[in-house]
């Protein structure tokens, strides 16, 4: 299809100014009148302004008994493209010992949420908030699984406070057993 011949014809300067001015005036008028128009409603799949599929800040699921759903199988670590998840399996507890995410490397792609077979990790609707340079960007279980309703506001793991959990990560047991799988 060839574009129409009239598209290549030039208007004069006066006619051009008139055309643009009239278009802008009509645009302005439409904007004023839109104040009186009824609200069209939101798009499908969106609550408030953000959609339900928004990939925000990460969180570890806590089940109804108050325990961590994650079993430390390591599937999310295997699938993460930027290698920002670090899981340490605790053989004594037979569960996850430490779960660290480097928040500055995370690309919020959603592959870990898709990979977990028991919905142990998920993206919430909260925006990952900016922070100062000096704060701790390597977050652990205490932050990821924090629930105000547990343990009188101290969160899931009452024996750890926020700083202690993150600074003690060198002392955790460093084993990960490949054979341990989730048996939900």
């Amino acid at each position: 299809m060839i574009l129409k011949r009239e598209l290549y014809q030039r208007h004069g300067y006066f006619k051009g100014i008139l055309i643009v001015l009239s278009l802008q005036m009509s645009r302005l008028l439409k904007m004023f009148l839109s104040v009186f128009k009824k609200d069209e409603g939101r798009l499908a799949g969106s609550e408030d302004q953000r959609s339900s599929k928004y990939k925000g800040m990460l969180a570890l699921t806590v089940n109804k008994q108050g325990e961590l759903q994650c079993t430390g199988c390591g599937l999310c670590q295997a699938v993460c493209p930027s290698d920002c998840i670090d899981i340490q399996f605790d053989k004594k507890k037979k569960g996850v010992g430490a779960f660290n995410i480097d928040l500055l490397r995370c690309v919020f792609c959603g592959l870990c949420e898709e990979a977990c077979p028991i919905d142990g990790i998920r993206h919430t609707a909260e925006i990952p908030s900016p922070g100062h340079f000096e704060q701790n960007w390597n977050i652990g279980i205490a932050t990821l699984a924090y629930r105000k309703s547990l343990n009188n506001g101290k969160g899931l793991l009452s024996e750890y406070t926020f700083d202690q959990q993150d600074l003690n990560q060198d002392n955790e047991t460093v084993l990960q057993d490949e054979g341990q799988t989730s048996n939900a």
Binding site: G45, S51, C109
Partner: peptide, 22 residues
């Protein structure tokens, strides 16, 4: 807004997978 309501982001959607869609 159409992309956001489908997969949460318009600049980096990652909407297909090998074998179909996400």
């Amino acid at each position: 807004k159409l992309f956001t309501s489908y997969c949460g982001g318009s600049v980096n959607p990652s909407l297909t997978r090998v074998g179909g869609m996400s």
